[in-house]
Amino acid sequence: MKLTLRIWRQKDAKSKGAFVTYTAEADEEMSFLEMLDVVNEGLIQRGEEPIAFDHDCREGICGTCGFVINGRAHGPRERTTVCQLHMRSFQDGDTLTLEPWRADAFPVLKDLVVDRGAFDRIIAAGGFIASAIGGAPDANAIPIRKENADLSMDAAACIGCGACVAACPNAAAMLFVSAKMGHLAMLPQGQPERMDRARAMVAQMDAEGFGTCTNHGECEAACPKAIRMEFIGRMNADYVKASLTGGRRAAGSEGGSG
């Protein structure tokens, strides 16, 4: 099949970018990124700069890849990262517009490559369970209801790709943040830090310049791992509770006189 590609080209973070048009030949068994590989091989051979795009595992789990195809993050197929998208999802003669994730918190580094360091900083602020390595009790010491473990896993499946932010008209990161909060809040091990975590992660999310959720639901539609907006509801509940209790901790948690 023959395709026309309009691709965002931008030399670096400081330069202005623009769309450049290319033509591509593809075979329907190819993955989308393999189609771009072939375009790039041709560009290199002609002495031109290949199109920079992030990718790594190419099996939809590392979360490295991702750009917008015709206005949809990761392209037209639901629950599919762009590396798992195959050319059979397109028709001969299609024109495809490719652009990077657009969000103030994700500056473009080059072409389709963006900086998602903001996500790491949100995790560093509170997206963890502080359990010193070496001091863990037996793994079966605390049984966990299967339903809770399953729900926790549903949220933990997030790959941190950033499609939710790219899809959101407000460039909000709430699906990402709520997925991590939900994953940890469903587990008994996640309880002691639950309220602190809610406050810290939300504060960092705001500091990074992400927007706020206004219930468009685009994030859920774009999410390649089908993370549900229900977690945003749970996050809001935790955040409200955490805010109402302020910085105060429960009585007795300040330690003894020893």
Binding site: F128, I129, A136, D138, A139, A149, S152, M153, H183, Q189
Partner: peptide
């Protein structure tokens, strides 16, 4: 043990 303590949601 360590993984469970860190919040790994193993199958149950």
């Amino acid at each position: 043990d360590q993984c469970v303590a860190l919040g790994v949601p193993f199958a149950r």
